[in-house]
Design a protein around this nucleic acid. Structure first.
Length: 101
DNA sequence: CTAGTGACTGTTT
DNA sequence: AAAACAGCCACTA
């Protein structure tokens, strides 16, 4: 089993309508400070529907940008709004309210 | 083995 | 407030 599976498992536990930070996922997976590996793991994930990768955002409460500039942030924002997450005028999420402990 | 890179974070300008 | 810097570690060439 790859260490990535551990991160995927944590992301799967994020309840619908909530979001988690990369650092938070890394910490919950038992590897604090491994935020970069979480991002790498999700990037390597590809098209899997069983992992709600759109619920994982950065510490600023904003959606991170992928290499290649694919305009992916708009898609992720739409997916989160579809689950009841509200973005503010700056395109950010209130982690104090929607952040998953 | 070394070097470069990245869905990040926290501190300092 | 936003931008720049440094630290971090797995993966690829």
């Amino acid at each position: 089993m790859s260490s990535h599976a551990r991160f995927y498992d944590v992301v799967r536990r994020i309840p619908r309508g909530r979001v988690a930070t990369y650092g938070g996922v890394a910490r919950a997976a038992g590897s604090p400070g491994a935020a970069r590996r979480v991002g790498y793991a999700l990037a390597a994930l590809g098209d899997r529907d069983d992992v709600p990768w759109h619920r994982v955002i950065n510490s600023k409460g904003e959606v991170s940008r992928r290499s290649g500039g694919t305009g992916f942030e708009h898609v992720q924002r739409a997916l989160l709004e579809s689950e009841g997450v509200v973005f503010d005028a700056r395109g950010r999420v209130d982690l104090d309210h929607y952040g998953w402990p």
